[in-house]
Amino acid sequence: MKSVSYGIAIFSFFLLARLSAQEKSTQTDFRYGKYLNVAALLDYQSSRDFGVSPLVYRGFHYGGMVELGFEGPRWDISVDGGLGVGESSVSKVATFNSESTVFYYNARVLRKFWDKEDGKFDFRAGLHLGGYSAQRVTPAFLNAALVWESINTLFATGKFNWRIRHEQSAGKFLFIRQRQGLRHMKLSTQLSLPLLNSVWRPDYAYIDDFSDGDADVFANNKLNFGGLRLQWRSDAYYYLLNGNALRLTYLWDAQRSANAINRLELGHHQMVLGIMIRLN
């Protein structure tokens, strides 16, 4: 616990130092560069695991994400990871709850293929590796209460960017006081379509055979390929005068596993608000 506290303190110090150092940035084109994005996320999750229930559990998860990335005139490269915790529920004869801890991780490489008006609009495409691992605890499922699953997908992805600049008058945006001056913004929308979808989760019998005295939640998990997964995200970037940016993301991620008898259906609606700290 102590080491976690030290880690948070060092990270906070780094963050503050970075932000203050950029107060007088002389960077001329804020739209491109290396960045560290620190974000808070709110995720509305719907899940149905036919291995244990035909009911859809819904609920909010809260968490955070960290992303390291590079956005250049030609390439976009980023890796991110995050954690969400929360509770879903379904109400029938009673209200049944399911607690989950979710790990998100992504890596994206995109190359520009088209642009117009000196980069005002561009289209980039590439590969996206998207992962999701979760632990769910649902007491109503008795011996099947605890499950671990991991969904990893290689996507082909396409992203459309629209860069805007305007003269900002003094005022507020997202509760942040704005000074007068030229501002850059970017809107982007990105669709990821699956090339290879894999799901590692409980197999046919669903639970581990613990008759040997060893209860191993992973023992009956198997890797299956197939199914369907789609991801669509839209981002709004607001570049600050010091070169950092605020980014608001809406992400829809939905997947259906291939295994017919224990099919897993998952839907996420995520809102992510982060600050992109410029690293160069």
Partner: peptide, 10 residues
């Protein structure tokens, strides 16, 4: 080994 699950009515 007994499993566990839920019906449409909960």
């Amino acid at each position: 080994i007994p499993n566990g699950g839920q019906l449409p009515n909960g």
